[in-house]
């Protein structure tokens, strides 16, 4: 690990932003990802601004929806009665991630900003365009069983590993940020980026900007939903494929459907193609399967992760079918 300076901003987000911009560093929240990355020297910030004590740890009702502060612990968020009651998909997704110990440390903002688990990204002896732009991608011809199949580029096939973000994508969340140029909102679907030829640029967050909260709209509250995570062991493993879905059927037709996938892309993947096909359609197994297939048609798997295409299709269809049956 490199030496770095440390400052704590406890009073206000603006102070944190000011401190960071003076020092050119990184915000430190739960530290469960950043500290690991610093130990491995994947990230070598000269300064840390500790935001874990900012007054951003509340969950509040707002315009019929919820505002989840950036420093709310993942465990707190998952257990919160309002979240469990209105957005059970979020609660379930969080509880499928990491371990109880990690969730007790991890925060909303940190979860959004966590970095990929690509083996080559973590190994400074390997070539990685995300870590060292232009150096190449050792995963392409190496181990990529856990890698992306959708939205990949020749430059990077890494995934965003979060579970929580899959739910937030499906629930049409909005990310609230503040920074040197003031406050702004970013739609969740736009927050994370595809790799393109700049895999090192992972989000729309600009230099120095701080996430202050994530908002959940009233429109996605109280939907019947399921989070299904498929992984290599029963707990404490990242998703090979996960599906967060919600479904509302009215008069035998699909009135609202939201499908998001984890473990398949550089960002939490909103399955818009499938959603579009299903809107207004009958909730049948055949329709679900067809929509799932259409979503995965653009997939570009490699030799290790071809199974994810079929797996994602099956999981989308079966989760929707289960939701349809519960409704019926």
């Amino acid at each position: 690990m490199n030496s770095f300076s440390y400052a704590r901003a406890s009073e206000s987000p603006d102070l944190a932003v000011a401190l960071l911009n003076e020092n050119q560093g990184r915000y430190l929240a739960g530290g469960t990802n950043l500290i690991d990355l610093m130990r491995e020297e994947i990230e070598t910030p000269a300064a840390l601004v500790d935001i874990s004590r900012l007054p951003l740890a509340q969950i509040e009702e707002r315009e019929g929806g919820l505002r989840i502060g950036a420093t709310v612990k993942n465990s707190h968020c998952a257990a919160h009665p309002l979240v469990r009651d209105r957005y059970p998909l979020l609660s379930s997704a969080i509880l499928h991630g990491a371990s109880a110990q990690l969730r007790n440390m991890a925060t909303t903002g940190g979860n959004l900003m966590q970095r990929t688990r690509c083996y080559y990204f973590y190994d400074t002896a390997s070539r990685c365009n995300k870590r060292t732009p232009g150096s190449g991608c050792d995963a392409a011809q190496g181990f990529h069983r856990i890698h992306a199949i959708l939205g990949t580029s020749p430059h990077c096939i890494a995934t965003h590993p979060s579970d929580m973000c899959v739910a937030l994508t499906a629930l049409d969340a909005t990310v609230q940020v503040t920074g040197p140029d003031g406050e702004r909102s970013i739609a969740f679907g736009d927050f994370h980026r595809l790799p393109g030829n700049t895999p090192h640029v992972e989000t729309e967050l600009r230099a120095g900007e701080l996430i202050t909260a994530v908002d959940l709209p009233a429109s996605s509250a109280n939907l019947p939903s399921i989070y299904r995570k498929v992984r290599d062991r029963a707990s404490y493993a990242f998703a090979l494929v996960s599906v967060g879905a919600a479904l509302r059927v009215e008069d035998g037709r699909i009135a609202d459907v939201r499908i998001a996938l984890g473990g398949v892309a550089h960002k939490p993947w909103r399955a818009s193609i499938a959603e579009q096909m299903l809107h207004g359609a009958e909730p049948t197994e055949a329709n679900f399967r067809q929509a799932a297939e259409a979503e995965l048609t653009p997939a570009t798997p490699g030799h290790d992760n071809a199974f994810k295409v079929e797996l994602a299709q099956r999981m989308i269809a079966s989760v929707l079918q289960e939701l349809a049956e519960v409704k019926a």
Binding site: R117, Y119, Y120, D123, A125, S126, D138, Q141, G142, F143, D232, R233, A234, S235, Y236, A237
Partner: peptide
């Protein structure tokens, strides 16, 4: 996971080298 191109172990940590957890 030995990468055959380099003979290098690519999962040298308990996060990626999967031993069973309680739930297994």
């Amino acid at each position: 996971m030995f990468d055959d191109r380099t003979g290098r172990i690519m999962n040298p940590s308990l996060a990626e080298y999967h031993v069973p957890v309680q739930a297994d």
